[in-house]
Simulated assay, not measured.
Amino acid sequence: MKEPKRDLNVITIASNYTIVAVTESGQHLLRIDGYSHTTGIPTGSDIKSSPFRVGGHSWRISYYPGAQTSSWPYYNCISLSLRLDDDAAKPQGVVRARHSFSLLDREGKPGPYFTNNGNKTLANWGTPAFIHRSELETSEHLHGDSFTIRCDVTVVKDIQTKSVGAAPAVPPPPDLNRDLGGLLATGEAADVAFEVDGKAFMAHRCVLMARSPVFRAELSGLQAAAEGSTAGGGSVITVRIEDMEAQDFEALLRYVYTDSLPEEMEEQGEAAAMLPDLVAAANRYEMERLRLLCEDKLRELVDVRTVALMLVFAGEHHCHGLKEACLRFLDDPANLREVVKVNGLEHLSKSCPSVVEDLIAKLAAAP
């Protein structure tokens, strides 16, 4: 008698594996101030950046204003080199990495000059012809005798094989500044009203107190004497701000909520008009990052017509970086002559008495 036929259920277990290269990426900005004073450095000589860390290793950028070599086609080119600065550079050590150099425009975005050297396992990776000096000197990237290079480094730290299931959802980019900006725009649940130059601004005490020690001290001591009501039934405190224009306070509030400056300040005229007032507001409310952002933008506006005023402003508001940029600008004899033509020595002696003696000495020594 035949045995009954049995059906066999075959269960197939499928597993997915992927090879994952664990990487760590970082950036380093190298700003060259006083470019014209570096052009006399001999070919093959470099200026090293301060060390920075990416992927557990220390790195430096070598800047060759006179190129690494005098051979064609590298003659009169600016060269760059990324150097490994720790023990991994020894023969027994291996570092797998990828790097690139970018020349940034005035807005901090990579320009058309971009070099990507691919994967390397050596300790010194160079770009012998990053940009010809004549190209740089006639481009908008060189402004106020300075330019900025960005170095992107990606280090492969480990290669692993992992079992994976369905691909995870990719989280969206951060949107906290957008949400807080919307809260400022709508005024929802606001509990403080500022009166500035005849205009009212609704805001939130908790946000202001978290962002500025001066706001924290001023607002925490106020009694909740109601001059209005929020949607939740709470009290609204009214604060009057003296000696500030409405547009400046509005820009200050925007920074408090979004950590960014108004878009209209990208226009040079708007920036020149508002930046000094924002520096004063940043000092008033002890917001150091805002002050440094504005000071950096003011440095881009230094020219023969503004340098004297900028020096006075820098001294009054303790903007040491702006003062140094003005003095570097005046260090060029050609710039000095133009400044004297535009402003006159008498005006300079009244507005900048601390530097006028240096100016006269430089003018006397200029060819």
Rank of each mutant, 00 (worst) to 15 (best):
E3K: 10
D7L: 09
I11R: 12
A14H: 13
S15I: 07
A21C: 06
A21W: 03
G26T: 04
Y35F: 15
H37G: 05
I41Q: 08
P42M: 13
G44N: 14
G44C: 13
R53A: 01
H57W: 02
I61E: 02
S62Q: 12
Y64A: 14
A67T: 14
S71F: 12
C77Y: 11
C77I: 01
S81R: 14
D85A: 12
D87I: 11
A88H: 02
V95R: 10
S100C: 09
L103T: 01
L103Q: 05
D105A: 00
G108R: 01
P112Q: 03
G118S: 09
T121F: 06
A123C: 11
N124R: 13
A129F: 06
F130G: 12
E137H: 06
T138G: 03
S146A: 14
S146Y: 00
V156I: 15
V156D: 09
D158K: 13
S163E: 12
A167E: 14
P168I: 05
V170W: 07
P173M: 00
L176E: 02
L176A: 07
G182C: 03
L184R: 05
G187D: 03
G187S: 05
A193R: 15
G198N: 08
K199T: 12
F201R: 06
A203L: 05
C206H: 14
P213F: 06
V214Q: 06
L219C: 08
A224P: 01
E227A: 13
G233E: 06
I237F: 03
I237M: 11
I237W: 00
V239Q: 11
I241Q: 15
E242Q: 13
D243K: 14
M244K: 09
Q247D: 11
E250A: 14
A251V: 02
A251F: 01
L253D: 04
L253Y: 04
S260K: 06
S260R: 08
P262E: 06
E270D: 03
E270H: 03
A272F: 00
A272S: 04
A273C: 04
M274D: 04
D277R: 15
V279S: 02
E286D: 15
C294A: 12
C294N: 10
K297F: 00
D303H: 08
V304S: 14
A308S: 10
A308G: 14
M310P: 07
M310H: 13
F313C: 04
A314W: 02
C319T: 09
C319R: 04
L322M: 09
R328W: 02
A334S: 11
N335E: 09
E338K: 14
N343W: 03
E346A: 11
E346V: 07
H347S: 11
C352T: 10
P353C: 10
I360G: 12
K362T: 12
L363S: 15
A365I: 07
A366H: 09
P367W: 05
